[in-house]
Design a protein around this nucleic acid. Structure first.
Length: 398
DNA sequence: GCTAGGGTTACTT
DNA sequence: AAGTAACCCTAGC
């Protein structure tokens, strides 16, 4: 279908971009193509804005513009990532000072004491000290050489930026569509349905499916649900969603397959070059899609996933149950001892994702936490999540 | 199939 | 050696 024939209003465009850009599993070349193809969005949502910064930073992690991206991220308070942002800022600034042509000039800019005191670096306790060291080294080549041995390491700086990006993705939160999905079909559904008129309810029923609609009606009739606490904004949003649902259904059918085709093409090129795609966010099991129809926008369950949220670019480890190592179903290899996975330290991003997942789903809902944010966890099982939570609890007993 | 809890291993202090 | 984090095993639901 031609892009010009999409029936996509700018307000829907904004919702759509909010959803897609904020999904770290959708590769940036696909989001760029989509951005070029959809109508200019009516507004920029915070999630969309943040995701764009993250994608820019990921493509260019060690530069002056990367530094501004980190500052932008740090300028919006996001408690879980403040320390990661400060450390990334410090590492990139130091790296730029150490590798630039003019140490003194660069230090003057990137280690401005005002930035250190109140801005991005405030969350990091060692920052003031480091800034002091760099400023003291101005005009003193020997001191610069000492600093260089510690801060001139490109891969260490890149790692800090990667950690920040990972933590930011983990903390980015659900899209507006996912939130609406939760309100219409998830745990919050009864309140939303109570506030809705008959016509709206019948639309909701189409979205969540008959089975879930019956469950929700049963909950409504059981008097177990408190009276509606819907705000005017809430109702306004739902009505807006109602108007745009048809447009959205039309729209979601269009760009994703094209993007996926791009992704598959890129994967083919990578494979031809001998690059192993297993960890790439855009790899997917090639046979699964043809035989499985696209799920409805709102699948009728408490954990509701729209097709947008459904990860078309998921790696095989996300879409298939893959044995970790040597786990054989039966028979010939059963006697072989299963190789132990190499211990991989949990990243800050994974920790944050676990904490927010537990907040969302509760302790003990490990599978739910894992599936609720699959891209945040890298090759972790529900048991891994449970073990990590146990460790965290030991570290800081409730 | 999922989870809780005890056990094991590898690494750090 | 002791402590810790990551991973494994398995009973019980």
């Amino acid at each position: 279908m031609e892009p010009s024939s999409w029936k996509l209003a700018p307000a829907v465009s904004a919702l759509y971009l909010d959803h897609l850009f904020g999904d770290s599993a959708v590769p940036s070349f696909a989001t760029s193509a989509i951005l070029a193809a959809v109508p200019f969005p009516s507004h920029s949502t915070p999630r969309f804005h943040r995701a764009r910064i993250l994608r820019r930073l990921a493509s260019d992690p060690l530069s002056a513009s990367a530094l501004s991206s980190i500052l932008l991220l740090a300028s919006t308070p996001s408690a879980p990532t403040a320390v990661a942002a400060a450390q990334a800022h410090l590492a990139v600034a130091a790296y730029l000072a150490e590798t630039g042509d003019d140490f003194d000039a660069v230090v003057g800019v990137v280690f401005d004491p005002r930035v250190a005191a109140e801005g991005a670096l405030a969350a990091c306790s060692e920052a003031a000290d480091v800034v002091g060291q760099f400023r003291a080294a101005v005009g003193t080549p020997s001191a610069q050489a000492t600093l260089k041995s510690r801060w001139g390491n490109q891969s260490a700086a890149e790692r800090r930026v990667r950690e920040l990006i990972e933590a930011e993705w983990a903390a980015i939160g659900p899209s507006l569509l996912e939130q609406a999905t939760q309100r219409i079909g998830g745990d919050a559904a009864p309140e939303t349905w109570r506030a809705a008129d008959e016509a709206t309810r019948s639309m909701y029923q189409q979205l969540v499916g008959e089975e879930r609609a019956q469950e929700i009606h049963a909950l409504l009739n059981s008097h177990a649900v408190p009276t509606s606490t819907s705000t005017p904004e809430h109702i306004k949003f739902i009505n807006k969603l109602k108007r745009s649902t048809q447009e959205l259904h039309d729209a979601v059918d269009d760009p994703l397959p094209a993007a996926k085709e791009d992704a598959e093409r890129a994967k083919a090129i990578l494979l031809a070059k001998g690059v192993k795609p297993s960890g790439a966010p855009w790899s997917s099991s090639p046979t699964s899609e043809a035989s499985h129809p696209r799920p409805s926008l709102f699948t009728p369950r408490n954990v509701v996933r729209s097709p947008l949220q459904t990860n078309l670019y998921a790696s095989p480890s996300q879409t298939e149950k893959q044995p970790l190592h040597g786990k054989f179903k039966d028979g010939q290899h059963a006697d072989q001892k299963k190789a132990r996975r190499k211990a991989r330290k949990w990243s800050e991003g994974e920790e944050i994702a676990l904490k927010s997942g537990v907040q969302r789903c509760g302790v003990g809902k490990w599978k739910q936490v894992l599936l609720g944010n699959p891209q945040a966890f890298h090759d972790r099982t529900a048991v891994d999540l449970k073990d990590k939570w146990r460790n965290l609890s030991k570290r800081a007993p409730a």
